[in-house]
Design a binder for these strands. Structure first.
Lengths: 296, 296
DNA sequence: GAGTAAATGCTGAAAGTGAGCATAACAGGC
DNA sequence: GCCTGTTATGCTCACTTTCAGCATTTACTC
């Protein structure tokens, strides 16, 4: 059996309060390329992420390996090894902006920052309606929907983005579902191959990781205000965080950040202290469990 | 470039209070085999786990994909996709026992159940001594050792098994370290290829998962006492748990188990209620976050 | 100087955790 | 039948963490 291996990267950055993912083309596709000879997997990902975006990846982590059965002829199979990468790319700057997509254009239901407490919106209602129709009177389905989409007073769990995608896929509500009906307009349009699934995998992973590892750091500039840090976390998490509690949780773990002594005056109000990450975070980030709050 | 793909499985079971892993031969090797054509990855793992052990895997989860550079000639590269699998195989029964190894014979420092509170033993002391020698006066190394092995009153974190293995490897304390010295007798002997690393990856993963997903279930018989459940968790976690608190945390989440109404009389003392997992656990196990305590 | 926007400080309820004591219910020996 | 050992099971208490809101401070803009 002939075998091919390719690397697929989910490269994320946050800019102006919005998360962006390196994905261009029509339909949009994640950067992917063959595994070069004599190169480690991580090095390969870093390599072509730089080629495509012009920026270096900070954090890199393996996501999942897929072996497509359907994609090619039986005698040539492709193994896709997917990676998550974080970078500080300033998008609007020198990079070709066409290569970047707004993450929540591709997974619109994952951004809930505009929702007020216990509030809802057109998209949520549409999904809930469609899902209830799909569930019918099957208790199992109903439970699953309630758990993943937070119906019936259950909390919204940001880190279950992948499972939500899979549910919508089964229910025929995303463009690439085999059973997609007309309501599939939830997503702007199809993405290449199974790239939306890979993207959802990456989003799930970073949201989970955010809660126990100091990875936001990779998305922040050298120095920043606590509000900027919070807004970056919120952008990834797709939901709002109680400001004072966020601030406290950051300050309590005094291994995490330290004030630079400078102030930022473009706040519109009282100037904010600037902070930087402590050196120990950079070095120990492979081990230390550092917690940032996600609301439940 | 020629490319080969192989599957490597970490198949775990718990029996008589000890965790076992499917690994035989000399040196011991995890079951591994080429990726068959026209077969999904998971199906492949299940397939040859059944062949080798005679039992079906319950839970299966992808671990990590390695692409060896060094292992073969430059024009033929092997991609190893590793999986974790859990099964209820009764070892001492019909299966060929030679295929199973006691997990903690392969990673002896990961079992701390015999340690009394704040106590220590020969192995721990030996490791601590060797690690302190290796750290010298390098603060970074010293911190890392303290964090991973719980020196200086830091808590032992069971789920960092992989990082501990990697540290020991760097420090030349396991048989397969490139710089292995005489003290490397920590491990009984070498394992094939990088299989001990893969095993440590699997142990890390299941220990982490145990804390927020009902996976123990896959290791338990149809009905069981709470003590039996606790001992299974302890076997995997490699440490003791406060009995009453364990019991409370199980009972509080009343989605998890329910009494069968029967009693077990072979306790030696007061008979114990028998429990079974609730149906919802089986179905929703892919989603529901169920917590079992690991001491910190 | 008034109004405003944001940073910052503080407090109290609620939930979760860790550790121990006390009691209940059996088996087996006498 | 009673005593003893052993385990299951019930309960309490202190302590920590988390959630959520109120109040105050500080500087900018007009």
């Amino acid at each position: 059996m002939r075998l091919q291996a390719e690397l697929v990267a989910v490269v994320l950055t946050v800019n102006a309060g919005r998360p962006w993912v390196l994905a261009g083309g029509e339909p949009p596709a994640l950067p992917a390329g063959p595994l070069a000879a004599g190169e480690s997997l991580q090095a390969g990902v870093r390599e072509f992420a730089r080629e495509r975006s012009g920026f270096d990846l900070g954090y890199v982590e393996q996501l999942y390996t897929f072996a497509d059965l359907g994609r090619s002829a039986d005698d040539c199979r492709t193994v896709s090894i997917s990676y998550l990468g974080l970078t500080r790319a300033p998008i609007d700057g020198s990079a070709r902006p066409a290569d970047w997509s707004a993450l929540y254009d591709l997974l619109p239901w994952e951004d809930r920052r505009h929702l007020t407490a216990s509030g809802t919106d057109r998209l949520s209602e549409e999904i809930e309606l469609a899902l209830r129709r799909w569930s019918g009177d099957l208790d199992e389905r109903r439970d699953r929907c309630a758990f993943l989409f937070g119906y019936d007073d259950r909390p919204w769990r940001a880190e279950f983005a992948l499972q939500r995608y899979e549910l919508l896929w089964e229910a025929g509500l995303v463009a690439e579902s085999p059973t997609a009906g007309r309501i599939s307009a939830l997503t702007a349009g199809p993405m290449a191959h199974d790239h939306r699934r890979i993207l959802a995998t990456g989003l799930s992973r970073i949201r989970a990781k955010l809660q126990y590892r100091p990875v936001v750091f990779e998305l922040m500039p050298e120095s920043f205000t606590l509000l900027a840090l919070q807004e970056t976390v919120e952008a990834i998490a797709g939901q709002h965080i109680h400001k004072q509690n966020f601030r406290r949780s950051v300050e309590v773990q005094h291994e995490l950040v330290e004030p630079t002594g400078e102030l930022s005056h473009d706040t519109g109000g009282r100037p904010a202290r600037l902070y930087r990450f402590r050196g120990s975070v950079r070095e120990e980030r492979a081990q230390v469990g550092t917690k940032l709050p996600l609301p439940r």
